[in-house]
Design a protein around this nucleic acid. Structure first.
Lengths: 203, 203, 203, 203
DNA sequence: GATGAATGAGATTTCATTCAT
DNA sequence: AATGAATGAAATCTCATTCAT
């Protein structure tokens, strides 16, 4: 085989990546404030000074973790939005993407939910965060336009409510308060769509 | 002699109370980590040493802020729960209580949303937090038992979803991302009930 | 005796003073950059944190050392300037004040000569430094006006030259390059006045 | 093939020279402590690692700057000293050499005056510095022997005073406190010789 | 109760220097 | 010779907490 990057993955593993991955684990374990720069470096197996070779500060490490992963999330959501499907199906897609991230990378979700979502850090990234709400809002509006969703609802508020429900379930898992497991994720998917689309009330 | 607390209210003004109120403002402004004990004392107009006369640590100040106010919230919610009303009306009551807290005391909401809700501090108070979910869950279950709400939904998950929606709207106000004002609070109330009870989908 | 400040001087010794005095010794010994904040605190017999109770930074300690002592020097020089004496006698007064400071407080002179005089720190205090030159310049100008000193000389440049001669002699003592002792100070006084007033050249 | 150093001068440009010249500029701009090795390398247009190929440390760079230039100064002064001229003319020569260095290479003078002259670095080079005083001292002594200069003065102290006057004028220019320009340099030359040789006092 | 001087553990950050490539 | 990623010692400064008054 010719591709050496596969043959010797670790040699090629760039330290910046190592540091970012370590940071996710350490932030997940200790929280942003509880995490010492030295802990991250140790977890990454590098000298702590190297962290400052790649990032200007501990906060920039967190910001980078957020930025890179949020961007990936946004891309996925944009693909879902672009799908040729009815609005309720798109909502299912968004729900899947967000809820399944928990099983996929629990540490990352831990960090995103606890350190970024409502925290005072990274308020600069407000625009990036807002875009998730906008995706949801556009889906709701599309549903309203197509007559799938009720038109008497404020689409913006609805998007915040939906996102809140999703994030709260992630939070339940993060805090160990909601039962975990693939089945539970599937059940949560169903439930949120049932509640949000169908409503609690018996028809 | 008559009640001095009326005669000289300010002199009698409990310094402990002063400190707690100041703490809310400072935590709201700077976040828990950004708030220095000296800032709180200064805001309260007392020497910072005095804080340690009433509280064992800065964290205990936050814990006390949380405890006292959360307890008040719980009492209110318990009263709503005990009302002799159908489940959907109780849901409306809970929604009102929670959303109106924003207009009532924005700084307090800021602190509760940002520093307590999902943060690593105060995990000890998990039981108190859980009780809010349980109130919601019991209301949902009651609705299911009475045939008002659909029975095919997981009541626990539903309660998390509802709470998430409520908290996210508070967050929107806290972050200045959702429009503020009495009308907006009323609209938010309506919307969350419409979404959660009626569902998005056209019947 | 009633004055307790004399009875218990050390109890009254305020820590700020202790820190400043220690700083002079440590700066003299190690230079500003070589001096660690911890060294100063240790020399003063206090915790290093206390230094930040009184000063905002290590640099402010140096600035304060400079400011307080330079101000004292200026006051003395102003008194000399105000004396009712001929210009050449005033020059003798200035010379005495400056050169005798060496015997008086060698550590302080060390710090002033090495860390302040031409260093990049404390450029903010330029005005205070300039005043010494101005005192000299005014004395020279007064001498010129009274016909004691030659009028064909630039008084400003002359003041810089005189001050340079004085400071260089201090430097010689600081660096251990010029012989030290009361006699030597007296000889230096005589020499600088001989050179500056009388000139090298035989008449 | 012809001399490549002419054909491709820049390629041949000694990196060591590049680094030294850059160091003078950076030391002049930021001071020795404020100058980072990386700054010097950047100013020189080379990687900072290369600096350690030519010098053992940052301090050695400063020492080299000092050594090479001081040596050049000494050679010039020695030539002046060896001239077949009366002592006062030799003094004029020394004055010219020292004061004109300012217009010639202000950055270098800045570094020499601020970082070397009285600083704790490079105390090893004390002998080299002393030689300048010795040149002056020998000129003064020669003048005394020849009957041109007064014999009742301590020649060593006189040499320190003269050097101090010269250096202080350089300092005035370095600090931007004395007016700059060719005319001013000429005036400074005249003034220092007038003061030192003729004295302030009217005869 | 009230004050604020005093403490000191601890954290981030800097940057000269090394060394594999 | 040349590069710049990597190291890690070291230093300043912060701030929660204590305690004498």
């Amino acid at each position: 085989m010719t591709d050496r990057s596969i043959a010797i993955p670790d040699a090629a593993a760039d330290k910046r990546r190592l540091i970012l991955d370590a940071a996710v684990r350490v932030f997940a374990r200790s929280g942003y404030h509880g995490a010492r720069v030295g802990d991250i470096a140790e977890e990454a197996g590098v000298a702590h000074g190297l962290l400052y070779h790649y990032f200007s500060s501990k906060e920039e490490v967190l910001a980078t973790v957020f930025r890179e992963n949020w961007r990936a999330l946004l891309e996925t959501l944009h693909r879902v939005e672009a799908d040729d499907e009815p609005a309720d199906e798109k909502l299912r897609g968004v729900t899947k993407v967000i809820l399944r991230s928990w099983r996929n990378d629990p540490d990352l979700v831990r960090v995103m939910v606890r350190e970024v979502a409502r925290s005072p850090h990274l308020q600069a990234q407000v625009d990036e965060v807002r875009e998730v709400f906008l995706v949801l809002q556009r889906i709701v509006e599309e549903g309203q336009a197509k007559g799938v969703f009720r038109r008497d609802l404020d689409a913006r508020l609805a998007s915040w409510i939906i996102y809140g429900g999703l994030e709260e379930i992630l939070t339940g898992w993060v805090l160990g308060q909601l039962p975990d497991g693939d089945d539970e994720v599937a059940r949560a998917e169903r439930t949120i769509l049932d509640v949000v689309c169908g409503g609690l009330v018996v028809r």
